[in-house]
Amino acid sequence: MTAGDDTAAARHAVLRNAAAIALTTGAYALSFGAVGVAGGLSVWQTCVLSLLMFSGGSQFAFVGVLGGGGAAGSAVSVALLLGGRNAFYGIRLAPLLGVRGVRRVLAGHFVLDETTAMTVAQGSTPLQRYAFWSTGPMLFAMWNLGTLVGALGAGELADPRVLGMDAAAPAAFLALLWPRLREAGAVPVALAGTAVCLAAVPFVPVGVPILLAAGVAIVAGAVTYRRAS
């Protein structure tokens, strides 16, 4: 991997990949917009989530808890716990991007699963920076456009379940989960967390079971970190 990778052809390939990811994201955002409104948020609230939170997993989890009748505190906690991974993407990206001053405020907004994957996949620093600063804004544009259209469309639909929209979030979570199952020791912890979560469903308020799963992850991490380090 040399600076020679940073050619016009390489930049073109980055843009093509970024556009493909952005298109996929736009379609996924349609379902988020519909699910947000179906979950009881206004069109405005759904769009503000996409503008400010701009993190698909956290947004779906947030409206899932709120739409299911969960407390606001539970919805906020789940969004933050799931968004915590972005802090670690930031650590990975900061030395590659070399951003300073006020540009860090903007760079922070674009720290996501997709931008991190695109950035670290490039072979040279200029290409990495090009990938980050092209993927981020394209994703942001398509994510927000898709959300707006989906949210407005859901208002027209009597029941978004007719289109199977309520199956979108679990499927998206599954797609995000699948590649992570290869992490060392992850499967037993995920199973234990899920079991605790399910066992609690009939007995505690909506939104609390998922927080109990988070508790399992923390306890398991504390018990096993010495072996992993």
Binding site: C197, L198, A217, G221
Partner: peptide
Amino acid sequence: RRVALLMPVTLLAALVVLQTFSTGTRF
């Protein structure tokens, strides 16, 4: 680092099952 690695896996797995097989406090 360890907790940060386990947290998304655990939450995503629980969310998949929870949002497929439950509505509110019922299965």
